[in-house]
């Protein structure tokens, strides 16, 4: 046996250089999240300068920005968790709609039956989360148990759920008539000046950041995305873990559905057709890897912010918001493209 003190036998000069630890500053500047954050700041400055009397940065408009980003953030964070494990969920937007429809129908029925406001709204929340979780579980089963590619499985589910939501509402009639306290008490409520739904979404994002960064669940998620076979080989329960990720993302979509009906006081059946793809764009722009193994929750927040800022800012300066679609698309391609070119992988 060789001597017990560590000698740098394994370290070859050229590999040493590659694997050297980076300083916190290097890591910060190397992170996509940082650059997207700076881009957000630049866009805020630009729109503030271009809008009349800087109305873009007014408190009223800031609140509108936060409120419109809440649902998108919940979807994007859920998707980022799935992407971390190398899985997709294209049905998140349909899940949102389905959850809100089920909750709205349940609440209308309860109001009709003379139930109290508080218990009705609580039931609405439970139905939203439950529907979201059930759809997530179904997706998870198709992917983790039956081994169907997640893109295909959730594409199929997207169609099934959307159709189901249309059938359940008599061909897409939006459901209204549930307690208005849902909107006044939550949807349009502000806490310390910040819209309650935005606070909720940011809290969830923060929680997910902690999970990814500091818990075994987070490590296992990244390990499964990074090398599914290695994860299996070290004895991780991959099937169970992937299932729970789909349920988690589904529940977050359900929560987004609850925010949706609380915000608009009606279901918005036709307003979320591109929600899942927008969530993919936001997560990937922020530095979450499509191939799995890397999640940036911070980047996801800034990615969602980018879409919201562009949408709102272009409208305020009187430009068609169609340009927002182009801008987000272009940023997505440029961000990922730059990453490819600068990647030092062998």
């Amino acid at each position: 046996m060789s001597d017990t003190k560590a000698v740098p036998v394994m370290a070859e000069p050229e590999t040493d250089d590659r694997a050297r630890q980076r300083t916190p500053l290097q890591r910060l500047m190397g992170a996509r999240a940082t650059w997207i954050f700076l881009l957000d700041i630049a866009l805020i400055a630009l729109f503030t300068a271009l809008s009349r009397e800087g109305v873009f940065l007014s408190w009223l408009n800031t609140k509108a920005l936060l409120l419109s980003g809440a649902e998108a953030l919940l979807l994007a964070v859920g998707l980022a968790m799935l992407l971390g494990a190398g899985k997709f969920d294209l049905s998140l937007g349909a899940n949102l709609v389905m959850s809100s429809v089920m909750a709205a129908l349940a609440m209308v029925a309860m109001v009709g039956a003379g139930a109290g406001v508080g218990v009705t709204i609580l039931a609405g929340l439970v139905v939203c989360l439950g529907t979201g979780a059930m759809i997530g579980a179904l997706n998870g089963m198709l992917v983790a148990v039956f081994g169907i590619n997640s893109l295909i499985a959730t594409l199929g589910m997207l169609g099934v759920i959307t159709g189901f939501a249309l059938v359940a509402t008599g061909n897409g009639q939006d459901v209204t008539g549930f307690p208005h306290q849902l909107q006044s008490g939550f949807g349009l409520r502000t806490i310390g000046g910040i819209p309650a739904p935005a606070l909720l979404a940011l809290t969830v994002a923060l929680a997910m950041w902690v999970v990814i960064r500091f818990t075994a669940f987070g490590r296992h998620t990244l390990a499964i995305g990074s090398a599914p076979l290695a994860a299996e080989r070290v004895g991780l329960r991959v099937t169970r873990h992937v299932m729970s990720l789909f349920v988690l993302a589904g529940m977050l979509a359900g929560l987004a559905g609850f925010i949706d009906i609380a915000h608009y006081q009606t279901t918005v059946i036709n307003g979320h057709n591109n929600a899942a793809l927008q969530a993919v764009a936001a997560a990937v722009i922020g530095g979450t890897a499509l191939e799995g193994g890397r999640i940036s929750i911070m980047g996801t927040i800034w990615g969602v912010a980018l879409a919201v800022i562009l949408q709102n800012g272009l409208v305020i300066i009187g430009v068609s918001s169609a340009y927002q679609l182009m801008a987000v698309g272009a940023v997505l391609i440029v961000a990922v493209g730059l990453d490819r070119m600068s990647s030092r992988r062998p």
């Binding site: 000698v7 740098p8 370290a11 070859e12 590999t15 590659r18 694997a19 050297r20 630890q21 992988r345």
Partner: peptide, 19 residues
């Protein structure tokens, strides 16, 4: 790692960066 006389430049970089 020390017990097995394995020396690595860093234990915190992703292992994809190792040889």
């Amino acid at each position: 790692l020390k017990e097995l006389s394995i020396a690595l430049p860093s234990l915190t970089v992703p292992v994809r960066e190792l040889s």
